[in-house]
Design a protein around this nucleic acid. Structure first.
Lengths: 356, 356
DNA sequence: TTGTATGCGTTATCAT
DNA sequence: ATGATAACGCATACAA
């Protein structure tokens, strides 16, 4: 309720002085400063951020545009974003559920004057043009972009090499009929993981068999259904790479229903390393991705641009993915010490940054 | 870069008219309105929200203050908040990781002028006074408050009755030596769940045995450790109520290590119904809480106050908790049809709103 | 229907 | 070291 003017009046100084005090200007007498602080406290004066950012044209806030904030993916990414932002005393304005590109633009528009930069994760293919429009006004960093954009930074996860490594794990164990449950068409993550799968087969001098590439949509249910064509294939696969853990879980249930033993009858490897993965029976071998870091890096790339009021340079970063070997592939080393640090997992195949 | 003045100039009208057009005023000629829209589009004019909220003293944004945004709890609550807010075209400014009360106040201060109301979830006991200070300036709704506050709305989960029902489930199954793994001291949720446990025992004419109330801190590890005193007790318990699922998971591993069969040798019931619960072996019977609704209701209670620019009335709401019976208690009906709607769970004991 | 002018709460540029 | 005062970008009461 009290404004800077009220404080100035009560303290017997000008509003300029009050402003100086609150912004830590050195050019103000210690005694008057003390008086101002005291009066401000008595009047319960809280500076108005909107007014401040109107004059400074800086907001100390970042906007985050997401397609959805369902589940673990979102919460971990957000945690990374929030942590990094808080460190630099930036606030986070979030807006989710943007499937259509008009919605993305609308959300960005409504943030005009409220944020200094934007972190965008667009799911829709059409959103690219939307982002281009946005990037003309804000520094922008893309998370897992489907296409690189000039003037936009980006942070992505190592889908290709992660998948390649996961499947290489299977070939190394001697499997030669390796199936894949694919993710939704048009989804970058899904497509990259598929590329990695194909590459790993080629690396092992194996051809790919279209009959072993089952369609899926990242849902648990689609993983369950994939068991049908998978078990009907002739000759059948001895191992399966699921494009994400959700589908691996579905497949796991289906094979349990069918009386198959994992990994003896079928080896399964997933992608994402969601929390559940280590609790499954058997615990799932899967490609781990550091989502927290995904968010953190996005902020760290965005902030310098925000500070300098320039567009983000061509900073493209790919976060490493790491294969977590548990028991769903019948690895040689299967020991799982339950309460140990990483859930008894054994880490291999650490891939360096920017490796793709 | 273009301001309302630029648009007015280019369209040959006054800034007042442009403002009217953008705010959908009816008192403007269709033709001039069209011209304004077109010019605005050409100039790529995006209204500045900060300036707008400075004059209107409304922001169309809500602030959310959280202690931490770890895991599922956060993501589900946020999803509820975001969904409800978006419906009314409100934005969400979030700020997490506030353990100390000064941090909470600081966060609230920095939101002055940027939000119209606040949703606060304070973990620290001292934060209460902080919230009181905040509530003098903003409409506030508390999530799971440790103490009710005048002028603050609140939404809480049914800890007491949820725990009572969970334990009643055990007594109904014939258990008479029922242990509990408690949550951290000073935590409201934990204390309420403990009260519910005691009440359920009393309901069944059972006394409580301090030796069967093991200390815990909500962590999986503390649940694991609890197995020691639990199995050492003489006579030992036939059932255990864990104050949250995490600890139940820890206990589950410990009993597996000890070679105990669940539920034959020991029945276990948890609280929260986290995603993992249904994937455990055996799937965990637990008290389900609708976190999404928790966030949604907070917004729905807050918004009317924001609209009317008055403090939130004495709206206190308690969301029902529901016992999800799976297989960790040896219920009579154990059928679990894996891919069915609720993960093959069977819902009982639905408790109405405001029931506590 | 449209334009003029004032104010929203700050910061910043000048003087003093 | 401090005080006037002009922006900042917009909404609105009032005048036309």
């Amino acid at each position: 309720l009290a404004t800077i003017r009220d404080v100035a009046g009560a303290a017997g100084v000008s509003i300029a002085t009050v402003s100086r005090v609150f912004n830590g200007s050195t050019k103000v007498d210690r005694r008057t400063a003390g008086r101002v602080w005291q009066v401000a406290d008595e009047l319960d004066y809280w500076p108005n951020s909107a007014a401040r950012s109107l004059t400074t044209s800086r907001t100390s806030a970042l906007g985050v545009l997401l397609p959805d904030l369902h589940g673990e993916f979102f919460s971990e990414v957000m945690r990374g974003i929030d942590g990094a932002a808080r460190q630099e005393e930036f606030q986070i304005l979030i807006s989710s559920s943007h499937a259509l590109q008009e919605e993305v633009v609308a959300a960005a528009r409504s943030m005009r004057g409220r944020v200094d930069g934007l972190i965008i994760m667009a799911s829709d293919a059409g959103s690219i043009e939307a982002v281009e429009e946005i990037a003309r006004r804000f520094p922008v960093v893309l998370i897992n972009p489907r296409r690189e954009l000039a003037e936009c930074g980006s942070v992505a996860i190592a889908n290709f090499s992660g998948a390649r490594r996961a499947v290489a794990h299977l070939t190394r164990l001697g499997h030669r009929r390796i199936a894949m449950i694919k993710g939704p068409q048009g989804n970058v993550d899904a497509e990259e993981r598929h590329r990695g799968y194909r590459q790993a087969l080629q690396d092992a001098d194996l051809g790919f068999d279209p009959a072993l590439e089952i369609a899926g949509d990242f849902s648990e249910h689609s993983g369950y259904r994939a068991a049908g064509p998978l078990l009907a294939a002739e000759p059948g696969p001895t191992a399966v790479f699921a494009a994400n853990d959700n589908m691996a879980i579905g497949l796991l249930s289906a094979t349990a229903d069918a009386g198959l033993r994992i990994p003896q009858d079928l080896a399964i490897v997933g992608f994402d390393d969601i929390t559940i993965a280590r609790y499954l029976s058997p615990p799932l071998t899967t490609a781990h991705v550091d989502l927290h870091q995904l968010g953190r890096r996005a902020v760290e790339i965005l902030l310098p641009a925000v500070m300098s009021a320039e567009p983000v340079g061509d900073v493209r970063e790919v976060l490493p993915s790491v294969l977590v070997v548990r028991q769903s592939c019948g690895s040689v080393r299967q020991t799982e010490l339950f309460m140990s640090g990483q859930g008894g997992t054994h880490w291999i195949a650490n891939q360096g940054r920017r490796a793709e």
